[in-house]
Design a binder for these strands. Structure first.
Lengths: 135, 135
DNA sequence: ATACACCCTGTAGCAACTACAGGGTCAAGC
DNA sequence: GCTTGACCCTGTAGTTGCTACAGGGTGTAT
């Protein structure tokens, strides 16, 4: 009679929604746990730590595919961690690209907004900026 | 016999995929054009400029809902453009929030990666950073 | 006994497209 | 006139990462 966690407890313990836990199971990220007599999922500590790993990775913006890879790699304890490094670096590059994109965007939006004198729509600089040049 | 554009020409003219044009029509963003005898969509200049507006807005990161609003507002030429300003400002705020989030993320990823000495997985700092503290 | 919180499965929905499948149309070339 | 090929049509399903039911069953407290 080892104590186990219900799906609700596991979810609360990791800041996850119950549906999301089931979704991770269906996606093959979280192994299917045993069941109680009443067909309830019964989780152990390994599930808790695996789910925590998933959540942290997700919070850091890794995709589910990347998380899957990281989990697989994490299990091969004595291999080189180059592959892990590569995933992290790829993700970092992606994040940096997004930052650059958004920063350029911010500038454009900023420019658009400061030009808007908030008169009528007809001479709104925002609409103007969005409208195609008449050829 | 006014010249008209086929969907492919319209798409090429605005840097859009054909399927996306049809998708915009189904979503109510682009009015359904007339048809030729052979049931081909026949677009005019108004479609071209409307689709350009949509693409520009999308490139600036506005959601389709926001684009819909902007399009509606843009047509009421003599109303005040406050509402437009509000949408743009809300979007700018959203972009700034994302930049802040991603910047924090980058820092964490950076820290993780520089700590990785790239030895074996067992002492990989990245996996370490992702793993839950053992209570 | 019955209320209530929780669990189960399965399906459908969100954004914003993208990618077929399985057809029809049209202009050019032989 | 017939075929080839590029284009067009509709409709549906896939993508990512969940979230939200619907329609049930379970467990516990009163």
């Amino acid at each position: 009679m080892t104590t186990h966690l219900t799906i609700g407890e596991l979810a609360r313990g990791t800041g996850t929604k119950v549906e999301t836990v089931r979704f991770y199971e269906k996606s093959g990220l979280l192994p299917a746990p045993g069941r109680t007599a009443g067909n309830y999922r019964a989780y152990g500590p390994s599930h808790l730590s695996r789910l925590s790993f998933i959540r942290r990775s997700r919070d850091l913006g890794f995709s589910l595919d990347q998380v899957r890879e990281l989990l697989d790699l994490a299990d091969e304890r004595d291999r080189s961690c180059e592959a892990i490094d590569a995933i992290a670096k790829a993700h970092l590059a992606e994040v940096e690209r997004k930052i650059a994109d958004l920063t350029a965007l911010r500038q454009e939006l900023d420019r658009m907004i400061t030009q808007c004198g908030c008169g009528t729509v007809a001479d709104c600089r925002i609409i103007d900026a969005l409208s195609p040049r008449v050829a």
